[in-house]
Each structure stands twice: as C-alpha cells, then as structure tokens.
Amino acid sequence: MIINHPLLGPRDSAEFTYMGDASLIDRPDWKNPQALTQFIDYGYMRDNPAGAHCELWYHEQGDRSFLVVTRDTTTHEIFSVELARDVARSRGRST
C-alpha cells in the first residue's frame, strides 16, 4: 500500500506501523462519574466495518508522525490521510 503522508507525500506502507482504530484518540475524561465504564468501552469495544475505517498509522521509519488514515477494509482504497495531531485538536483534545 501507499500512504499519502500530508507532509512527506506518497510513502510505502512498509515505513509505517499500524496502531489500530483511530477511536483511540477519543480517550475519556477521568473525572467523569462514568469514567470506568467509558474507559472499558474505550479500551475494548471496536467497530469492525467492512468498508471505510479510520485507523492510526505511525510513520516509525520516517518522521514519527501519527496519521489518521481512512481506508476501505475491503479494497484498501485510501480516502484521506491526516495528521493525528490535527484530528485530535479538531476533536477538542486540548491539553
């Protein structure tokens, strides 16, 4: 596969390490009264779509960026590649 890195252009997927579902960005708030339940969902519950899937790829043999790659799990077509940091900020992760 080829991942079109937002900063570095098209790179072979061999340079990356797959790091799982991009929902890992949405870490719950530890102060929430339901935090324990929320963390269990966060840690263990995953969607397994046949189709578009947002996932984390780590450019470990490159610039060490975490990327959010939206990929069709049935065809490997890649719809978008974003810096995970930008995604995290856009989802309101502040500190």
């Binding site: 790091m19 890992l24 870490r27 984390l56 780590y58 960026s65 940091r85 995290a88 900020r89 992760r93």
Partner: peptide
C-alpha cells in the same frame, strides 16, 4: 502516541 494523539497541545 500520547504526545500526538492524546495531548496534542
């Protein structure tokens, strides 16, 4: 991962 995805700021 923690630096970029959890506490990006």
């Amino acid at each position: 991962f923690a630096r970029q995805c959890l506490w990006p700021n």
